[in-house]
Simulated scan of single mutants.
Amino acid sequence: MKNERIDCKVILDKRRESKNHTYPLRMRLTFKRKRKYYSITTKLTEEDWNILNSESVKGQLRKIRNDIAKVEETAKDVIKSIPAFSFKEFEERFFNKRTKEEYLSFYFSEYIQTLRKNEQVKTAISYETAINSLTKFKKNIKPTEIDVKFLSEYEKWMLKNKKSNSTIGIYLRNLRSIMNILKEKKLISENEYPFGRKKYQIPQGRNVKKAIPLPYIKQIFDYKISDDNLFKERSKDFWLFSYLANGMNFTDIANLVWGDFSDDSFVFIRSKTKRTTKHNPHPITVMRNEYINAIIKKWGNVEKAKYPDELVFNHYCPTKIGYKSAVTLYSKGLQHKKLLFQNWGSTPDFFSMV
């Protein structure tokens, strides 16, 4: 059946006037000459309704008009999703969808799905962590509840729970991105947007990166795994591989294919910049040396080296993307790096070194 035969429009229902001379707004759905009306909880005078539909509308009435457009858009999306339309099926889908869309978590979830489709898994995890933290602070948050007071109280709560300014900044920059999307879609107004000058300022963390002194690098190279811990040995080797390959990201290591390699070098494009530089990519060349070759021989899928599209470290990265393996390699490698420094009596300052 053709959904074009279904008419959907929010109207001023003048059948019943309230004591304050307002009328309810209702969404009118017409199908096969049958009409049903659904309340959207807003009431207006006839004068305000006429202003609302004029070009000069502003302020609260403009916000109501944007809300009406959103309700109509949601209803039309639901109608398109129903193979054989019925009012009952529409009501079940529409009211369930509207309930979900009231909450901030819905928009985070939508954006996280987009990130995962774009294979930006680490960024998706960052957004998941942010919304988990925000909903732990306050359940069932609505976008319209995110104001300067809310953000200031959230910041205080995070500091009270021993979270750093860096962590707070990461979570709130993710929130700001979602609020930017909502503002672009006109789901919140400029006045409701809480970030910016003379509004809430996201705290900035200090992340001073320092290079590990060469004596410590040598100790990592020379360190012998004495307890036959295969995972610890692999973590050490992949950390060294990253170090020798110009600080190569573990996701990029997981995605290396044999086609990237020549006899004396290999080439890769950083995953962090691949999307932003896709029209002008900047390949990085890494010269192979005895250490890199030894790690490839030890952990690589060398029997598939003649196939250009095969992953170099396929055994440890079972999917083409290999993100879970990359994250595991990184986190375990970092844990073992800390353990090495602790064994040598180093201070915690070295833990964040690169």
Rank of each mutant, 00 (worst) to 15 (best):
I146M: 00
L256A: 03
K97C: 01
R26Q: 15
E233I: 08
K156S: 13
I296E: 09
I220G: 02
D48A: 09
Y154I: 00
Y23C: 08
S325P: 09
E73S: 14
A294C: 10
R176I: 01
K209L: 12
L187D: 09
M248D: 08
E91R: 07
S126D: 07
H279G: 10
H336K: 09
N229Y: 12
N165H: 10
K218C: 02
S54C: 05
N66Q: 15
S189C: 12
V257Q: 01
W344S: 02
N96W: 11
S18Y: 12
R176M: 02
K9T: 14
E303L: 06
I79F: 07
K19L: 13
T74S: 09
Y216T: 06
L214A: 12
E46M: 10
Q204Y: 11
S39Q: 13
Y307I: 08
K320I: 01
T273W: 04
E17F: 08
K136E: 01
G247D: 08
K186A: 06
F238R: 05
S54V: 07
Y307G: 00
R15T: 11
F313P: 13
K34Y: 12
L104G: 01
T319L: 06
T74W: 09
T41N: 15
Y316P: 08
K332D: 11
E303N: 10
Y243M: 13
Q335R: 14
E73W: 05
T277I: 04
R33S: 14
G259R: 01
I225H: 08
R62Y: 09
S166E: 11
R270Q: 05
I64L: 11
S39N: 15
L29N: 07
S331N: 15
W344V: 04
F195A: 01
F108I: 02
D349C: 11
V10M: 10
K186Q: 14
I141L: 08
S226F: 09
E46Q: 13
